[in-house]
């Protein structure tokens, strides 16, 4: 029994790391959005807002169009004198990566390792 577990465990881990669909191991690769759509954008905004703990998220006009990595950070705010808030930010942006695994398009939050399979997006390897 232990021998079976010892043999199966690395395979299961490999499957988890690389993605598995219909019994076939899928290799994950950095991706970009093949096309921009309102639905894909809305899905990304909803997932990223929830993952990053934001009330709302504003994405660029063409997210993931040129890069598989997307940074989100505090929306630029200014005080009444026009000074940036905060001027000394001790935090860090949140990084998300787009991955493609077979036909699946996956969003990865790098800080937590959480992943979401996107239903509305169409991805291509970068």
């Amino acid at each position: 029994m232990m021998k079976v577990i010892r043999t199966a465990l690395p395979l299961l881990l490999l499957a988890a790391m690389t993605g598995c669909k219909n019994g076939t191991l899928q290799h994950e690769a950095p991706a970009r959005l093949a096309e921009q759509s309102d639905a894909a954008r809305a899905e990304l905004e909803q997932i990223i807002a929830k993952a990053a703990g934001a009330y709302t998220v504003t994405l660029a006009e063409h997210p993931f169009a040129d890069s598989s990595v997307l940074l989100v950070e505090r929306r630029p705010q200014r005080d009444p004198q026009g000074h940036r808030l905060p001027g000394r930010d001790l935090g860090n942006p949140e990084r998300f990566q787009l991955l493609v695994s077979g036909e699946d398009c996956i969003l990865l939050q790098e800080s937590t390792g959480k992943r979401w399979e996107l239903r509305e997006a169409n991805c291509l390897p970068q």
Binding site: L70, V72, R75, P76
Partner: peptide, 18 residues
């Protein structure tokens, strides 16, 4: 300074604004 938390806790893609 102060502002509504809903504004402060909103994010955008790095450097993105309307």
């Amino acid at each position: 300074f102060h502002m509504p938390t809903s504004e402060y806790r909103s994010l955008s893609q790095s450097g993105t604004s309307v």
